[in-house]
Design a protein around this nucleic acid. Structure first.
Length: 300
DNA sequence: GCGTCCAGGTCTACC
DNA sequence: GGTAGACCTGGACGC
């Protein structure tokens, strides 16, 4: 089954697909030769399906692994729009950087939409798996979660596990099988709180709380500190924080500070001119070279 | 082969 | 509120 979803003017599928490390973590899979982004979506009431997404002129094309009813098709459209940030209002951000020669490329290349998961829960678990470890270990943990606990689509690929599936496993499972180390009790506790209904992380997406208040609420989750909360805030569409981690600090040092070590204060000062958009300006600046050549909006 | 360091940090105890 | 030390894993590196 094929579904075409209209994209906003200037949207770049390539820049969006590769905007964030998530494209490299299961169940996402990005084929950079064909520029095809695949993943399994858990439709809850129905068997999970695999979707393959490609860019086009003024639309993205979604091919599903089987025919879908009206309700399931609507959920696929909703999830794809959410993942690719098709409903994000970018004009204010683009206006804030349009006159800056170092950042104008973001407008002309259609960058600035950060790929995210269909659920806040998935983004939160993945973020917890990025802390204090190499990317290789992050991959190993996420791959383990998907492979061990994700529901299977018809083609044998797996979705990201539900909170209920994760809550059903023991802390030892997360240590011994997932190899998550000291994060094991954090993952177990988070899944239990979400599955039990005492924590509604999906509500964070439409929360009326101020960013500092929402950040405080996020940090009530064990294993979520400043970096993890700020990273999640970006994925929710709030960019008034920087989510500085060792990778960003190193990249800023190389690209913006002549290879010299710098303080967080200096990084904050550098991007402060972008106001409420400073987190997004920083992220685009740090990931500019993730695409070797500049992508024109005419080549989505 | 072995020890050390560190990578897309966080928690707790203590001051 | 600020800080030191502990916490898991696994790859890179020096010896």
């Amino acid at each position: 089954m094929e579904i075409s979803i209209a994209t906003p003017p200037g949207f770049s599928f390539k820049r969006t697909a590769i905007s964030h490390g998530w494209y490299n973590l299961p169940p996402f899979d990005l084929n950079q030769e064909q520029w095809k982004l695949s993943r399994v979506l858990d439709l809850r009431g129905a068997q999970p399906i695999t979707v393959k997404i490609t860019g086009g002129n003024g639309a993205v094309n979604v091919v599903t692994s089987r025919e879908l009813g009206k309700q399931s098709a609507q959920q696929v459209v909703r999830d794809v729009r959410h993942m690719l940030r098709l409903d994000d209002e970018m004009s204010s951000f683009y206006a804030s950087i349009a006159d800056d020669p170092d950042f104008e490329w973001i407008v002309s290349s259609g960058a600035g939409r950060l790929l995210r998961s269909p659920t806040v829960f998935e983004d939160l678990v993945k973020t917890m798996c990025t802390t204090n470890c190499s990317w290789a270990l992050t991959y190993k943990m996420v791959d383990g979660l998907v492979g061990e606990l994700g529901r299977e689509s018809r083609g044998g690929q797996r979705a990201f596990p539900t909170p209920e599936a994760m809550a059903s496993k023991t802390e030892r499972f997360y240590r011994d099988v997932i190899r998550s180390g000291y994060r094991a009790p954090y993952l177990k506790e988070l899944a239990e709180r979400v599955a039990g209904g005492s924590l509604d992380v999906e509500s964070w997406f439409s929360s009326d709380l101020s960013t500092p208040d929402l950040q405080r609420e996020m940090k009530t989750v064990k294993g979520v500190g400043d970096y993890a909360a700020e990273n999640l805030l970006k994925l929710l569409g709030r960019y008034d924080c920087l989510a500085l981690d060792s990778w960003v600090r190193g990249k800023f040092k190389r690209t913006r500070n002549g290879g010299r070590k710098t303080s967080d204060k200096k990084i904050e000062r550098y991007y402060s001119r972008f106001g409420e958009w400073r987190g997004l300006a920083l992220w685009c600046d740090m990931t500019r070279d993730w695409l070797e050549t500049e992508e024109s909006v005419a080549i989505p």
